[in-house]
Write a protein that binds this DNA or RNA. Structure first.
Length: 735
DNA sequence: ACTTGACCTACGTTG
DNA sequence: TAGGTCAAGT
């Protein structure tokens, strides 16, 4: 195996296999390369078998790529049996096997944030809890925080400083009970139960210590307490462990990530060898300096400074936009300009922002300019209502105790089961000491009307029919049958509303997704698919080979790189978002550091003078982010392009708002006139070749109507004929 | 039991 | 804007 493509420090970190290793890996210092080579080294030197290596990555996509990378270093060895995945996916895999030890069955459901919140809401309704200033959302996040600190309901109750906390601890207690009776776990439980298992059943711990003989953790700075404990339990005995991280890139403190884990590592494991990767191979000198000038303000950081042999490079461009639309315009027009100069492909550009809501203004701009773009994250595909409804059916088939799923679909599509009937079902279920599903065994004896009985029998019949397919049919067949039996196509397409048409398109896309999953893993069963869906990260769904500009949050961008990076919304209160306490402020600075160091060649920083919220007319005057002022002036290039003359004396708030309104009006007026003069610019014409996210290339064979609402008939590859609504189809015109 | 419309609140990042 | 909630009407 060839280690010559590594620098000295990288190589030393790779070949140190005797003692626990802590690698401080600065941004762009080649840590993924080091991890891949280290795994390859462990296997190649026959120190460990592939199946005895555990590597934890931050996304499933990164896990896949890591396997491919190791395979390419060791073409002669089969590395498929390596255990590579996120904490959550590895934990889930363990728990499927060990469920019975913990009082679950292996069919347990995984509740996402939305499911947890619904459950909490049900509990609050059922127990008529009404605490002011407290809603299901805030309680869910409170419970999550408690779980990340290993605090159980009784711990919270014992230390409750007021009645409010006391009440919340009671909700927490019931919530946990309901999860258990639903044979379900939330995201936090996935990390906590393996620890429970290891502590209560030492022989299971021994089994996994033997299985995972060498443990590697990427993005170690973002591990939380349960994750650290998980690693400690597995690796303390054999001390075969390597962790890689960068305290400057710790950006998940708000979900329990603890930088102390880096210090603890040295304290807990013995004779830890520390390596520092400080040579950056990614960025220009100017980019590194700009990033460093902000993060160095932090007091609590390991002193280090990245260096590079790369060019000095361009200066950092700074632009003050009028509002978020102007900001979007500026960025889009710069992408067009730069395409000839710096980077030709759209994939070379990323726009990073602090909040998902900011993506909207960009989306409009990109559509207008006809530039392909991809938004990573935001409202997730699997979180859409129509998708969650179907997933709830599938989940209930696999796990009939799943109460949240039962509640979700008992009256979807509407079948005349309202609150009263549902309550009777639930009461019967609890009387039988079981779930609502169990109550369906005695529909006849329920005190409900004939109509309700009839639809309950139908509901039960449908589920039983599908359930009988579980062992004999593929997940795809089951899902297809379900959708047919529910007559969803008719349900969504009969109303002729574009929203519903879009929902039906999503359902078709879901089916396609299931099919793809089944094709990839022919032996997969329904629960495999459901788990895959639950544990997907935003980045996992990102197709980075598509030629389009990438838009994502700064958090999602961690670990990625792009030739050109735009960081938008650099305004006080937006980015940095939290200025209240120093710890939050430190994390915002690290987030900025992460953002800037994603760039290889060029960075643009933009901020707006006014910003709208909630899509309404009202806009708030914004101040330039202090981050920009922390960067030495000689690294900056202030872009003086202005779309509008400013009345600098207009400090009066109301006057500024007037300004914005008239500006917005003029904008939309000019946009409208542009459209009418160029006769249907943006409209579709028969014969055009278009690209669809799902169906690929196709030819427009008919257009009914104009503009957003136009109905398009398109013939896609493979003789697939589709009718789509122009405004929702998200088509890219190719010619 | 379901549909409709008025009203309210929310834009903090993720598995 | 948009999604959720509540009350009134069907």
């Amino acid at each position: 195996m060839n280690l010559t493509e590594l620098n000295n420090e990288q190589r030393d970190a790779v070949i140190e296999t005797k003692y626990p290793v802590l690698i401080f890996a600065g941004a762009g210092s080649g840590k993924t390369r080091v991890l891949a080579h280290k795994i390859a080294h462990l296997i190649n030197e026959q120190l460990f078998q592939p199946q005895n290596v555990l590597a934890v990555t931050f996304t499933n996509k990164a896990a896949k790529e890591m396997k491919i990378r190791v395979q390419s270093i060791l073409p002669q060895i089969d590395v498929r049996s390596m255990n590579v995945g996120t904490f959550h996916s590895i934990a889930a895999r363990i728990l499927r096997h060990e469920a019975k030890y913990l009082g679950f069955t292996s069919a347990f459901s995984i509740y996402d944030t939305d499911d947890s919140q619904k459950l909490i809401k049900d509990i609050m309704n059922e127990h008529q809890v009404n605490i002011d200033g407290v809603n299901p959302k805030s309680i869910r996040s409170f419970i999550s925080k408690m779980k990340n600190k290993f605090n159980k309901p009784e711990d919270v109750q014992a230390s409750a400083i007021n009645n409010k906390i006391n009440q919340i601890s009671e909700i927490y207690r019931i919530y946990q009970e309901k999860l258990i009776s639903s044979n379900a776990m939330d995201f936090d439980d996935l990390l906590l139960y393996p620890i429970d298992l290891f502590v209560k059943f030492p022989e299971r711990l021994q089994y996994y210590q033997k299985l995972f003989q060498y443990v590697l953790v990427d993005e170690y700075q973002d591990t939380n307490k349960p994750q650290f404990e998980f690693i400690r339990l597995l690796a303390f005995k054999h001390q075969n462990v390597t962790v890689v991280g960068d305290d400057d890139q710790s950006i998940y403190g708000w979900r329990g990530a603890d930088i102390q884990n880096i210090l603890n590592f040295e304290n807990i494991f013995s004779k830890v060898k520390i390596f520092k990767l400080e040579q950056n191979y990614r960025s220009t000198q100017n980019i590194l300096q700009a990033a460093h000038s902000v993060v160095e303000q932090n007091t609590d950081r390991a002193e280090k400074k990245l260096w590079t042999n790369n060019d000095v490079g361009d200066k950092i461009s700074v632009f003050e936009a009028f509002d978020e639309r102007d900001e979007a315009k500026y960025i889009v027009s710069n992408i067009q300009k730069l395409r000839n100069r710096i980077a030709n492909s759209f994939t070379d550009y990323a726009i990073l922002y602090r909040t998902n809501a900011q993506s909207r203004a960009f989306e409009e701009s990109f559509i207008q300019q006809g530039i392909p773009y991809t938004i990573v994250g935001g409202t997730k595909f699997y979180a859409r209502k129509e998708i969650k409804d179907i997933l709830a059916y599938l989940r209930l088939l696999v796990n009939e105790k799943d109460e949240v799923s039962f509640n979700r679909i008992i009256n979807f599509p509407t079948r005349g089961i309202g609150g009263t009937t549902l309550e009777k079902i639930k009461y019967r279920g609890s009387q039988l000491g079981g779930s609502s599903w169990d109550a369906l065994d005695g529909i006849e004896s329920l005190e409900i009307r004939a109509q309700q009985k009839k639809s309950l029998f139908q509901f039960k019949g449908l589920l039983e029919k599908l359930k009988s397919m579980l062992s004999s049919h593929s997940p795809f067949d089951i899902a297809k049958m379900l959708i047919q039996e529910l007559h969803l196509e008719n349900y969504y397409t009969s109303q002729n509303s574009p929203e519903d048409a879009d929902r039906w398109n999503n359902i078709e896309e879901l089916l396609l997704g299931i099919q793809t999953f089944c094709d990839d893993k022919p032996e997969a069963v329904l629960s495999d698919f459901l788990e895959n869906v639950s544990l997907q990260t935003d980045i996992d769904n990102w197709n980075d080979s598509e030629n389009s500009v990438t838009l994502m949050t700064l958090h999602s961008a961690k670990g990625l790189e792009f030739p050109v990076v735009f960081i938008a919304g650099l305004e006080e209160g937006l980015f940095p978002m939290w200025m209240d306490d120093e710890r939050n402020m430190d994390e915002e600075r690290r987030l900025f550091y992460v953002g800037v160091t994603r760039a290889m060649k060029k960075v643009f920083l933009t901020h707006a003078k006014f910003r709208r919220r909630y899509g309404g007319d009202s806009a708030i005057p914004m101040l330039k982010s202090e981050f920009i002022d922390l960067i030495p002036e000689d690294l900056l290039l202030l872009d003086s392009t202005k779309r509008k003359q400013w009345d600098t004396s207009a400090n009066d708030y109301r006057k500024r708002i007037e300004e914005i309104r008239s500006y917005a009006k003029a904008e939309s007026a000019s946009a409208a006139s542009k459209q009418s003069t160029s006769a249907g610019n943006g409209d579709y014409q028969t014969g055009q070749i278009v690209q669809h996210k799902l169906w690929g290339k196709g030819k427009v064979i008919d257009v009914e109507g104009i503009g957003e609402k136009a109905k398009l008939t398109i013939l896609f590859a493979g003789n697939v004929n589709k009718k789509l609504i122009a405004g929702y189809a998200n088509l890219k015109v190719i010619s």
